[in-house]
């Protein structure tokens, strides 16, 4: 099967700023690509080029097998776009917004109306369907905007920072919606500044910084690049920190990091939960009390830091797995 999205050598310059500096992308049909990067990395520029809104200065792109530059209108029939802002008309009701989009996809009057009701129901906007969208919460507007991208059931969907600016609850709701969508086999290109979001939703992650792709792989592959799992523990009694270290050294696959002020030890390990159980048995046998213990897999934050040399402009996401 041909990939749903192929981009080659995309370059876009604005006066003295190079927004994109030779970007290649391939998104196989039915998969989710997460385009991850800080503000101004060039994510939105890529989406705009692929959705025919912007002409690149160099390079080529195909979406659903159609050349984006040669046949933009044919591409528009195959895509759905939901942007960084909720692009809904706040004076129209939820229903009117979706019905209008259906008409503009040329679904016809009846089908547009049916489809609008269907989507409102599946996005849990039924009760608000006939209220002007001005009265919606931020999360509801985003869901309506996303529903707009799905009106024509397009095979390829672009979501540009779908959860930026949402509160945690709105974000979780949005993730649910996106996961349902993806389960249906739609090809999705998703941009995000949230490492956690790419990790959760994407099959493949492309890390972009200053208009260049700096890494590409699955979430696991990227984490591997930074190193495997680590065993992290905090002892209750600071004076027994060295003793704990000596006890656990045989289980580790590399040198330990000691953070004395936090009474914490970090060991690179292999074997996951089994190693953790083993470690607990050893420490318990020595009567060593712990305040905290866990297996820590590297977060995408660690990935970003090791790839770019700077942290992403996002609060660190702490992630503990396997405890």
């Amino acid at each position: 099967m041909t990939p749903a999205i192929v981009a080659q050598g995309l370059v876009k310059k604005y006066k003295d700023v190079t927004a994109l500096d030779g970007v290649d992308l391939t998104v196989p049909t039915g998969t989710v690509l997460g385009l991850l990067g800080p503000n101004g990395a060039g994510k939105t520029t890529i989406v705009r080029i692929l959705t025919t809104l912007l002409q690149p200065d160099a390079g080529s792109a195909e979406v659903a097998g159609i050349d984006v530059l040669a046949a933009p209108r044919a591409v528009r029939r195959k895509i759905g776009l939901s942007g960084q802002y909720a692009a809904v008309d706040e004076y129209l009701t939820g229903y009117e917004n979706l019905e209008m989009i259906g008409r503009l996809y040329h679904l016809g009057r009846r089908r547009s109306s049916e489809r609008a009701r269907e989507l409102l129901a599946s996005f849990r906007l039924e009760d608000a369907a006939d209220r002007p969208s001005k009265t919606y919460s931020g999360g509801m507007r985003r869901r309506l905007d996303l529903a707009g991208a799905l009106v024509a059931d397009p095979p390829v969907i672009f979501l540009d920072e779908p959860t930026t600016g949402l509160d945690p609850r709105g974000r979780t709701e949005m993730w649910d919606v996106i996961q349902t969508l993806v389960a249906g086999g739609t090809t999705l290109l998703l941009t995000t500044q949230y490492l956690e979001e790419a990790d959760l939703l994407a099959d493949d992650i492309v890390v972009i910084d200053h208009g260049r792709i700096i890494a590409h792989g699955t979430s696991d592959q990227l984490k591997q690049q930074v190193g495997g799992e680590r065993l992290e523990l905090t002892v209750r009694d600071a004076s027994r920190l060295d003793e704990a270290r000596t006890l656990l050294e045989p289980l580790a696959v590399g040198p330990a990091t000691v953070e004395a002020n936090r009474r914490a030890l970090l060991f690179p390990v292999q074997g996951g939960a089994q190693t953790l159980t083993e470690a607990l048995r050893v420490l318990d046998g020595a009567g060593l009390m712990l305040d905290d213990v866990g297996l820590r897999r590297p977060t995408l934050d660690d990935v970003f830091l090791s790839l770019t040399g700077h942290v992403s402009e996002d609060e660190p996401v702490s992630e503990k797995a396997g405890v």
């Binding site: 809104l53 942007g83 996809y105 707009g148």
Partner: peptide, 16 residues
């Protein structure tokens, strides 16, 4: 508000 982005991504007549 990005509504023009939405319109421009639709297969509608551009002058509409």
């Amino acid at each position: 508000k990005g509504i023009i982005d939405r319109f421009r991504s639709l297969p509608m007549a551009p002058s509409a």
